[in-house]
Design a protein around this nucleic acid. Structure first.
Length: 514
RNA sequence: GUGGCUGUAGCUCAGCUGGCAGAGCGCCACACUGUGGAUGUGGUUGUCGUGGGUUCGAGCCCCAUCAGCCACCCCA
């Protein structure tokens, strides 16, 4: 009593019975949907080696991991499921015939600043479809997400489909180095929402050498570096050495001379990124404006790609996906294309998609996913295996359902009957009756507090318990019990062996009346 | 990580310019010693989020800290 209260850890939640039921219902519904498409369940550990996420997850996620050193191992609480599932696939399932369909559900952890619909521990439930690179696979997975939302009865949701391949192919051609490439991929959405100037400003922060297009002419000071671009490796090295000697820096004999020169050279040559970056930013600006129905987006995208003369395989894949979705009969009132879409996880290589909900706000998606064709190889898989998948945020689904009034009525009361002995002597008889009903599968609660009949009825009423069985000396003597239906106040004296049957009968009558 | 609002009974909240910590709901009991939802009566619960400071005196003012929410950021 005098002890101070111990608080719940920040950003995590207790799931109390009422909410638990609702969450359970959501999980059961999703699971049933997933199983109907042939996805098999698996459960995975909550802790993993941190390395699993360092390669391909993306800086934002990595920065927010629960990452710790324990007995000389570097471990973390998983921040998402896909990498874990792929790790498990590589560990245990590489002999399985492909394609392999898996679904999962479990807690993940991110050290974020908590607020509504954003917690440090939350539950992801999703699927992975391993071993199919076709658009048909992406379509199945999107269809599945869509179907799950419908099965839950949600109405006010909107799926947005994009494709990271369009931009990444473009950046590949420009030979932009990987750090800047992932920066640009990550900032596609910022480009769309905040505009080109915003992204340019951000870019300068990580790459100060960047000149934007306003500085058209090359200043004298840059001619030297431009010159370096034209030299081959050996020539450039000599030039650097010579330059350093001329300003009285002597590296000969220094152990790291080679390395220092190489590093200087890369730095100097970085400038070379500027024209590429400028072109990339322009391209992003144009492409990120394309969103809406396929009929509106695809022809425009075609024009832009043609004007930059880039390969259209990504766009073709997208078109194929659109066609496949139409085969599934998914209407475009809930789905749209958005070529400015980008995602926090870096492993996506193709189709990406998100699902938003009106009750949660634009920035809180219910679901996110996409295609990640390189992840298995990156994580050490035997073969280069393509895959696609998504994850729902269970807590967000719950909030979305609530915002649509879907949680109405509330969960059914667990207990169907309350058995109360009127006198202490009747207690054994009450226990016997309780056990009899339980054997029939009826959830039964026993009055263990020896309360008055009145209190018991009040309690049953508040708890929503449908039947009360009263047992007193008179009943016991006659081998009977009093069975009372709470809703109709109807009461019957029946033989103890027949309580269950009588209960069924009374329930039938009540249903008939209503 | 940045900025803002909030924190008083189990719950929702009131509490004036700094002067005895309150209401409603809930819970328990009784009215009614074997019959519920109404009503009445009584009872019950507080380190005023935590720690420090100012003051004769702090729920109220100041500082710090923790937590919840909101906007950024980002994600499911």
């Amino acid at each position: 009593m005098a002890n101070s209260k111990i608080e719940r850890v920040r950003g995590v939640n207790d799931v109390l019975p009422r909410e638990y039921r609702a969450m359970r219902h959501i999980q059961d519904t999703l699971q049933a949907t997933f199983e109907r498409f042939g996805y098999a369940p698996l459960e995975l550990p909550v802790i993993e080696h941190t390395d699993l996420y360092l390669k391909k997850s993306g800086e934002e996620i990595i920065a927010r991991m629960y990452d710790f050193q324990y007995r000389s191992r570097r471990l973390c609480l998983r921040p998402e499921m896909t990498a874990s599932v792929m790790r498990a696939y590589i560990d245990n399932l590489q002999n399985e015939p492909l394609p392999l369909r898996l679904h999962y559900s479990g807690p993940v952890f991110r050290y974020e600043k908590p607020q509504k619909a954003r917690y440090r521990q939350f539950t992801q439930m999703g699927v992975e479809l391993i071993g199919a690179s076709q658009a048909l696979a992406d379509a199945e997975v999107i269809r599945l997400a869509y179907g799950a939302l419908q099965a839950l009865g949600l109405k006010d949701f909107r799926a947005v489909i994009g494709h990271v391949g369009i931009l990444s192919r473009f950046l590949q051609n420009l030979k932009i180095d990987s750090r800047l490439r992932s920066f640009l991929l990550q900032n596609m959405e910022a480009m769309q929402k905040k505009g080109s100037a915003f992204v340019t400003e951000r870019l300068r922060q990580i790459y100060p050498a960047f000149e934007d297009s306003s500085a058209q002419t090359m200043p004298r000071s840059q001619r030297l570096t431009a010159l370096f671009q034209e030299m081959d490796e050996a020539e450039a090295r000599l030039a650097v050495l010579d330059f350093l000697q001329n300003i009285n820096i002597h590296l000969e004999g220094s152990r790291d001379a080679d390395e220092i020169i190489a590093r200087l050279l890369t730095k100097i040559r970085r400038r070379d990124q500027t024209p590429g970056l400028q072109s990339a930013l322009r391209f992003m600006d144009e492409i990120s404006r394309l969103s809406g129905s396929p009929a509106a987006v695809l022809p425009e995208a075609e024009k832009i790609l043609a004007s930059y003369a880039i390969d259209r395989s990504a766009l073709d894949a997208l078109r194929e996906l659109v066609r496949a979705l139409e085969h599934y009969g998914l209407g475009w009132e809930h789905i749209s294309l958005d070529l400015g879409l980008s995602r926090g996880l870096q492993y996506y290589t193709g189709t990406i998609f998100e699902v938003h909900h009106g009750g949660l706000g634009e920035e809180r998606q219910l679901c996110g996913g996409g295609r990640y064709d390189d992840l298995i190889a990156t994580l050490g898989g035997l073969n280069d295996i393509p895959a696609t998948g998504f994850a729902f945020g269970l807590e967000r689904l719950h909030l979305a359902l609530e915002s649509e009034g879907g949680a109405k009525g509330g969960p059914q009361p667990l207990v169907r009957a309350l058995i109360a002995a009127i006198d202490a002597q009747d207690f054994p008889y009450a226990v016997e009756t309780a056990e009899r009903l339980r054997a029939h599968g009826v959830p039964v609660e026993l009055d263990v507090r020896q309360r008055s009949v009145k209190s018991n009825l009040q309690y049953a009423d508040k708890r929503g318990i449908a039947f009360v069985v009263l047992i007193g000396p008179t009943e016991r003597a006659a081998g009977e019990v009093v069975l009372r239906a709470m809703d109709t106040r109807q009461e019957k004296r029946v033989r103890a062996e027949e309580v269950y049957a009588a209960m069924q009968q009374m329930r039938g009558e009540n249903d008939g009346q209503s």
